[in-house]
Amino acid sequence: MNEILISPQVSLELFLSSLVLLFLSFALYHTLYILLRYDKNATNALQYELEKRSLLTTTIIKVALLISIFLFILFVLSIDTLAELIPGAMCGAGVVNSGIYGSLLIALKFIVIVLAIFWIQVDEEDQKAKGFPYFSLKMYLYIFLYLLIALSWFLELNFFMSLSVEEPVLCCSNLYTSQTTSFMLGMSIEEIVVAFYITYLFILLATYLKKKVFLSLLSILFLYLSYITIVYFFSTYIYELPTHKCPYCILAKEYYFIGYFIYGVLVMANYYVLYGVVFSFKEHTKSKIITAYTLFVVLVSFKYIYYFLSNNLFL
């Protein structure tokens, strides 16, 4: 049997995510049942029965979210310890890049967490409002979420199976050598960083003016830019090593777990945007979006500015 699969962290990871998927499938069955029978004009007794059924989905999602966050942390920690087993991999990034699905998997897990938090919010709003205004949104969103989770389960299984303890990986090599690669539209990393800050300013503006469509597009762009700038630019300042380009090591103890804050704030920022776009765009939502994005930008830029001020030069 594959040594990766039987290592405690990995088998636990797979065991738990399979268990979660099993329960979510059960909830999916109920969701479909509700969707097929739901009728706005049906008798109140039937509505009540369906409402009770949908509480199961709510409960399962809540527990699943808890487990997903736990698994995310476990995933990051376990790919780090797996580095010991995989020849050539020096840290988590080496492991993630040794499997074809690594980065996609991390991104997917991130999106699932944001969407799950959002789903719980939709559910709460739906119950608070009279007449279940978000009922079908909730149900379809659940199906979408379910598909994403099933996909990430599948990718994860493939990812761990494709890891090999025999073939050496070229650790972080594609990250290391990307000095001259261009990213989007042939921009260099410096230009991307500038774009990152400009997008941030536009987000503030869009939030202030309550332009929902504009804001959602910007936030997607910003998410992508954040990933690139964190990996290829900001992380090098956090590590104080121009060649160390890695999105995982910032989660490590050596860097005071700063990564959890950075990613956590980014999750919150995206969640507030989703909330604001779908529900009411009140003043406090506005200030939450602005605070979360600003905090994120400050967190990632802090070391970079600090480095510049203390050394008067860039890496």
């Binding site: 962290q9 065991f15 268990l19 329960f23 199961l56 409960t59 527990v63 476990l74 920690l77």
Partner: peptide, 21 residues
């Protein structure tokens, strides 16, 4: 710390899931 986390994951979380239904 990973051990404690694994233990938590192997026991507390499945327990919670099992009682949901």
């Amino acid at each position: 710390p990973l051990d404690l986390l694994i233990l938590f994951g192997i026991f507390v979380l499945p327990f919670l899931l099992a009682v949901v239904i």
